[in-house]
């Protein structure tokens, strides 16, 4: 376990000596800016209309956190679904195509050193992206008074969703030597996770309520929503911990499987 830092450090250095990291971060900032401006514009538009029609009940419900920051966080979590597979697709697949897998597996490292080191590298990068997201609601504190707690718990949600996506993307990368396949597999898995609540609500809710409940629990979106509402519940935190743990275990088994063949 001493070598996690060595693996993570190399991985991060490789990201930052190539244009990939900077490209992803710039793209991400631009997208975040666009979404934020759109959300602010929409927020103001709705506010004006409500005042015009004197819809005081709706107006009372209208606040920066639920109607602007929450929407913005939601959009950014979808953006992460596209970007993270791009970041993680090379984690293991490139080691195989470079032949460096042989270097790692014949060095005095444990498989956990490799798996946790690579996860840590991805998690650090996602943390940087989350900080970029956090800057935008930060601006609102200068002009309005959003709730600090809700703003932070939503940001925590982004962070946990991102880390979960990294664990899933890492696993997808570990099962193939082709980065394109790694990208597609992780993207499809993440998309499926996103669609689970809809499947639960419209597909099986009537016929098999128990199955619907399980499907809803498995979806990251449901737990993310709780955090957006400012509800930091151990059950939701546990969901993210379990998902990350399960995919890291699967990744470990997959890396180790080179040795079974």
């Amino acid at each position: 376990m001493k070598q996690i830092g060595s693996i993570a450090g190399r991985e991060l250095r490789s990201m930052f000596v190539s244009p990939i990291a900077y490209g992803v971060m710039s793209l991400f900032s631009i997208l975040a800016g666009v979404f934020f401006i759109l959300d602010v514009a929409w927020f103001n538009e709705m506010l004006m209309r409500m005042q015009q029609y004197q819809a005081f009940d709706e107006l009372a419900q209208w606040n920066l956190n639920d109607s602007l920051i929450g929407e913005f966080y939601g959009s950014m979590s979808v953006v992460l679904m596209f970007l993270i597979p791009g970041i993680t697709m090379g984690l293991y697949a490139s080691e195989k195509s470079n032949g460096t897998e042989e270097l790692l597996l014949t060095s005095p490292l444990t498989i956990w050193d490799i798996v946790l080191g690579k996860f840590l590298a991805g998690a650090v990068f996602v943390t940087l992206l989350t900080l970029l997201v956090g800057m935008f609601p930060g601006l609102l504190f200068a002009y309005g008074d959003p709730e600090v707690g809700k703003t932070m718990s939503g940001l925590l949600g982004i962070l946990l969703v991102g880390w979960t996506y990294v664990a899933i993307g890492g696993f997808a990368s570990s099962i193939t030597r082709n980065q394109i396949i790694a990208f597609l597999v992780s993207f499809v898995v993440l998309l499926t996770l996103l669609l689970l609540p809809a499947v639960a609500d419209f597909g099986v809710a009537g016929s098999a309520p128990a199955v619907a409940e399980v499907l809803r629990y498995l979806s990251a979106a449901i737990h993310f929503e709780q955090l957006l509402k400012g509800l930091v519940d151990t059950a939701d935190l546990a969901y993210f911990a379990v998902m990350i743990g399960v995919f890291l275990l699967l990744t470990k088994a997959s890396v180790e499987s080179v040795r079974w063949r």
């Binding site: 000596v17 470079n98 042989e102």
Partner: peptide, 18 residues
């Protein structure tokens, strides 16, 4: 055992970007 070995595989295990 692995620590006691220096190993050069058939294709040298290099990271081209480093």
């Amino acid at each position: 055992a692995r620590g006691a070995i220096g190993y050069l595989p058939e294709t040298p295990p290099l990271y081209p970007e480093m």
